[in-house]
Design a protein around this nucleic acid. Structure first.
Length: 263
DNA sequence: CGTATCCTGACC
DNA sequence: GGTCAGGATACG
């Protein structure tokens, strides 16, 4: 399940399960996923070999040779499950069947995930900002990415053209780590806040990378600082965690210790 | 910027 | 039965 750390873990698992294997067939198991793949696409995948699996933001590229690329996006609830063709797991929406009898399923309870066949260099992925897991993400990179951005910082962090890989949970977590209000004007942040935010994003991503169960399940959410903790005491200052809507999404934050610059 | 939308589940 | 959900896009 899917923000950058979860997608990265899933990409690594797919790479381990699929790299070097010959594909017998790619099959769709749900109309929503079938919409992105024509019969010609499915035929073009058959008999190919999985060369390299790569993550780009929250997108995953499965390179199949001859510049053929299978592009996957999990959206809200997608994941890869290893298995055998004859026993599809619950919520299986597509399956890559390999010549050795193994299989990898795209599972997705919401059926929002996408799978399309593209050409290398024309993957159909919109422009992405600096990767949230990149060492290049520092205060300067954030300043450049946010300079022309109007409005509050929290929705800006969800824009993949600003930073690639953050989602609603870790954007809130990163702002908490940075002691920064989700309402702070994105373009108004100065060097200290930008550095704190870059550091908060790095720390949030690193924590999640080391703790794959963090994102989902009640137990995992219990390890988050603000997301899902409305009314509970802030782990830092004890003030109750608040919840508001921004750009149609829930934002959890601590009004006690997450400040606006100058505030 | 905000809202609706894709589809299906979990939870109240 | 209603509400809400980790994403992303189209549109007003």
């Amino acid at each position: 399940m899917p923000e950058l750390p979860e997608v990265e873990h899933a990409t690594q698992r797919l790479a381990r399960s699929a790299t070097g294997k010959q594909i017998v067939a790619l099959r769709t198991l749900h109309p929503a996923i079938a919409r992105g793949l024509s019969d010609g696409d499915l035929a073009r995948v058959a008999a190919r070999t999985v060369h390299v699996v790569e993550r780009r933001g929250k997108h995953q590229l499965v390179h199949l040779g001859d510049d053929v690329v299978l592009v996957a996006h999990f959206r809200m609830a997608g994941d890869w499950h290893d298995g055998v063709v004859t026993e599809p797991p619950r919520f299986a929406r597509a399956v890559l069947e390999f010549s050795d009898g193994s299989a990898v399923f795209l599972v997705d309870s919401r059926a929002f995930a996408t799978l399309v066949l593209r050409t290398r260099g024309d993957e159909g992925i919109p422009a992405l900002g600096v990767d949230a897991a990149s060492a290049a993400l520092d205060g300067d990179a954030l300043r450049g990415a946010l300079a022309k951005r109007r409005g509050p910082i929290k929705p800006a962090l969800l824009d993949q053209a600003v930073i690639a890989g953050l989602g609603n949970i870790y954007a809130a977590e990163a702002l908490w780590h940075a002691h920064l209000s989700p309402f702070a004007a994105a373009s108004s942040l100065e060097a200290p806040q930008l550095m704190a935010l870059a550091d908060g994003i790095r720390r949030t991503i690193a924590l999640a990378m080391d703790d794959p169960g963090r994102y989902s399940r009640g137990e995992g959410l219990a390890r988050l600082a603000v997301y899902g903790r409305e009314g509970a005491p802030c782990l830092r200052c004890g003030a109750p965690i608040a919840r508001v809507a921004q750009a149609g999404r829930s934002t959890f934050f601590c009004a006690g210790c997450q400040r606006e610059p100058g505030g």
